[in-house]
Design a protein around this nucleic acid. Structure first.
Lengths: 203, 203
DNA sequence: AAATTTTTTAATCAAATGATTAATACACGA
DNA sequence: TCGTGTATTAATCATTTGATTAAAAAATTT
């Protein structure tokens, strides 16, 4: 009954996690076979259970990581009372586009798994950052009392995140090459701020 | 070797398709068990294969339907040389938000499956509507020669579609109720047009 | 009504899949 | 170097899952 790992072999454990990151985010939980992960990691299948007990447990570790990447910085940014709407949007756009260019699979992966299993992540997210109480939310309500601030939250996230979700489709129908896609995403960092301000000031 | 269905029993075949629509769009291809579909349809598992040969074949029928719903009307709309940018955006927003309010699972489902298997849908979509040659694309290039029209395509689709993809998340962190969500989506039909024009005119 | 075709069911198969086990290899302090 | 705990492997298990089969039931035709 060997189960404790008092002395962790960083190398093997990390190899498995790295493989799991790749396969899980690429294919999602349901389509991922533990054998795929083992093969990708170049290890014996049994080692996966030796180090992580189960597919489920390993998955939770990975998706929490990815959720942290996807939502980790947005909380502090929108909570900051000392920055303007414009600054917040600029920070969010720049940070997330940089992040997502290196991790383009994350949004579809995370949002998909949240939708498949909302209860699982309910407590985890809910407590962390309540958007409704954020400085950004209040600032938006003050600037445009006639429009529900949630609209602008959707707009901001949509402008930043959607291109990464829609990219496979757009690549299919326009033949958009990977390089030009990356260039477009970088342009958006600057444009989104301008667009967002324009939407704020729209009649 | 009973395999031909010369006289189709609409009722049973349609029951299976209806169940397949529900389960596939809710959970995706990989997470769907043919037994789930059979149970949802209230039929014997073997009937699924009797009518549709395989899970794969049934899936293709369903996702083609859903892609038709998601993309079917956008082609003619953006190809129309006789309407302005504003009119096109308004038509797209109104049509898709109405459609997606009744079918909120479609975007994540379709975009997810496209990403999982781009080759499968390559020919199917590519030929259908080449956005790059659309009237909208040309109009956008004329109106804002300084900005890649693809940005505005992303913006339009993001404003319309993203709220439906991000809804599970937003519901989690704001407790947004289903009813208010629907009301928000309806508001967007009118707002998106204004926002889009504002973005077009942004400095 | 008899014969034929179509639809439905229960039972079963074969492959895939998550997980476990028992044995072996390895590391390292006593 | 021996012994003990750790890491790794090959083999195997139990379940799930997509699919098939053979028989029964229902519908349709003759």
């Amino acid at each position: 009954m060997a189960k404790a790992k008092i002395k962790a072999d960083i190398s093997t454990e990390e190899k498995i996690k790295e493989a799991a990151r790749k396969v899980f985010t690429q294919k999602g939980y349901a389509a991922t076979r533990t054998r795929d992960i083992a093969e990708e990691a170049g290890i014996n299948l049994a080692l996966l259970n030796y180090y992580f007990r189960s597919k489920e447990k390993l998955f939770e570790i990975i998706i929490l990581e990815k959720m942290q990447i996807l939502f980790g910085k947005i909380g502090p940014t929108i909570m900051n009372e000392g920055t303007s709407i414009e600054e917040k949007v600029e920070l969010v756009a720049e940070h997330y586009i940089d992040t997502l260019v290196s991790n383009p699979d994350i949004p579809l992966f995370v949002l998909g798994e949240i939708k498949n299993n909302p209860d699982k992540f309910a407590k985890l997210i809910k407590t962390k950052t309540n958007i409704t109480n954020s400085a950004l939310f209040r600032q938006l309500a003050e600037r445009r009392p006639d429009i529900d601030p949630l609209h602008f939250i959707f707009n901001m996230l949509g402008l930043v995140i959607f291109p990464f979700i829609g990219k496979p489709l757009i690549q299919l129908i326009t033949g958009l090459e990977q390089q030009k896609a990356a260039a477009l995403m970088n342009e958006r960092k600057r444009l989104i701020k301008t667009w967002f301000v324009a939407m704020l000031e729209a009649p």
